[in-house]
Amino acid sequence: MSAVLLAVERLTMRFSGLTAVDDLSFEARRGDITALIGPNGAGKTTVFNCITGFYKPTRGRLAFAREGAADAGAVAALTRSGARGARSPAGDLHLLERMPDHEIARRARVARTFQNIRLFSGMTALENLVVAQHNALMRASGMTLFGLLGLPGWRRAERRAVERAAAWLERIGLSARADDPAGDLPYGDQRRLEIARAMCTGPALLCLDEPAAGLNPRESAGLNKLLRSIRDDDGVSILLIEHDMSVVMEISDHVVVLDYGRKISEGTPAFVRGDPKVIAAYLGVDDEAEAARAAAEIEAAGAGAP
């Protein structure tokens, strides 16, 4: 089994009276696609917001080991030290709940997408991907000074950034629309562009909030391929929130199920799908049976046609 990348421990998030996440613990392993599913309002997006620093958790610990493993001893030592992160021969360790959001993206290298797409809609698709490489480019431009003078080192760095952006546009099939404003793109394309933008920050963990929303089954299949390739070819671990079971059950290595902010089940896709608690709270009774019936119906209808 691979090492623990992110350890969520006893996470609690309260909003004036409402407990959105309640004493939640789970782990995401390096090289895995870990899915977070559950009914509407179960607290999935809230967990993301805690991990990426947009909310400060009411309680709990979020240990993130960019390299190496988040082993209990080191995490405990770091917690006691009061620091945000530690660098050791075994690798970097960060306590995300202590870091501001932009540092989580920059230092811990956690990237995310948003449930209600947040692209820079007045900027082109290409610009969106170049902005994502901000920190690397800032360094290359000597905090703007070299850039202002147009030194060759900066020019090279910029060219590389554009090439990388172009490669990502190619990969998500948007090369032809590179110079169109992101706001002009159809919904499904915007979703993929947002994933590419997150990937351009060079993350260790990619948090995707409903990437398949608004895609039809065929497009979801394409998304599956993309996410698998991000995991396998780019070596980036993924934390995935999704209601489309054709995505979750296809590509996840591990599934965590939330309901009312608590973990109600956890395991492989096959296990979770069969768990009566999950069926009752989320999937709905006889989901499998209905899916099978649906398939048969299509088949039958298809057979009837010439």
């Binding site: 509407n40 409903e210 929303a213 209601h243 079971m245 989320y282 999937l283 709905g284 989901d287």
Partner: peptide, 12 residues
Amino acid sequence: EPSLGLAPLVVK
């Protein structure tokens, strides 16, 4: 797209 972002049970 009324079913967008809704849990399977709610879609039904």
